[in-house]
Amino acid sequence: MATERSGSPSTADPAFVTAGPRSAAPGRVGRRGGILGFIVRRLLLGLLVLFLVSIVVFAATQALPGDPARAILGRTATPASLAALREQLHLNEPVVQQYFTWITGLLHGDLGTSLAAQVPVTTLLAGRLLNTAFLVLCAGLISIPLSIAIGSYAALRRDRAFDVGTSVGTLLFAALPEFVVGVTLVVLFATTVLHVLPAISLIPPGTKPWTQPKEMILPTLTLVLAVTPYVSRIMRASMIEVLESDYVEMARLKGLPERIVIRRHALPNALGPTFQVIAINLAYLAGGVIVVEYIFNYAGIGGALRDAVSTRDLPVVQALAMLIATLYVVLNLLADIATILVTPRLRTRL
């Protein structure tokens, strides 16, 4: 999955030879400003990506050929309702101006008004956003340390029982779609075998998800089982590579205790590539959580997106698409920074 990333830190840099800050020494082309300069460059690149995404989102929703107002209203359209909707969506203006009206609102935190619910998009999504964020956070807090531990230990116990066992296990779960995992968990713990957990996760509107711990267990577990296999397999591969490297061998030859070798030398270097996979998986969680929310009837943004697409609620679809894109960009940035901080080789090159 690491290959899906938009670019590693070193390959992204040349794009900012001219756009980067001017403070750095002239001799070190593309490596200006140290870690801060790097973050600024990456931020600007992220903004560029978001700008391009916004054009794509806008083009795919509002600027499509045909009349979106007619598409939204379908057979229920009357001349009056068509005119009102065109007005609301600014469809009478030139496309470029429509885009700028939309993007300006977006930049001012005005996501528009939901066509289906007739309330501001922010009002509609606030509670759901919190629910999804909490679910992703729970899944992340459990799966990340767990998968790093599993991957590292499997690498250390390479080809022994634990390694073989977790390899088979992670391969199995990586191959199973969340849908299958989620439904199986429901059958096991809620409806058929045992009756110990709720089959669906109802967070009554107005209550916070952390006040309903029992409802959180199955959706969190489903996401953990979806993410952990990828991350732990990458961690294992990365750790094995590091353990076979010259510097680890040197550290061992120098007589350092194995504990120190692993903690000081092997682990930080192995974490670098893993961070990238974690970032991708977290971003994936935020978007892919749709399936899990569907299975458990969990009131999150996944459900809102599904609903908005079905009712052709353009402002909500646009807002959620931008939100998920932003999350991808931010998580990638954080992963790059974390990678650089744990990898001395990269840190010193900046």
Partner: peptide, 14 residues
């Protein structure tokens, strides 16, 4: 939105 979740919730007594 999903009839399967609906049935599961009934089966589990929710």
């Amino acid at each position: 939105p999903d009839p399967s979740a609906q049935v599961n919730a009934l089966l589990s007594g929710q």
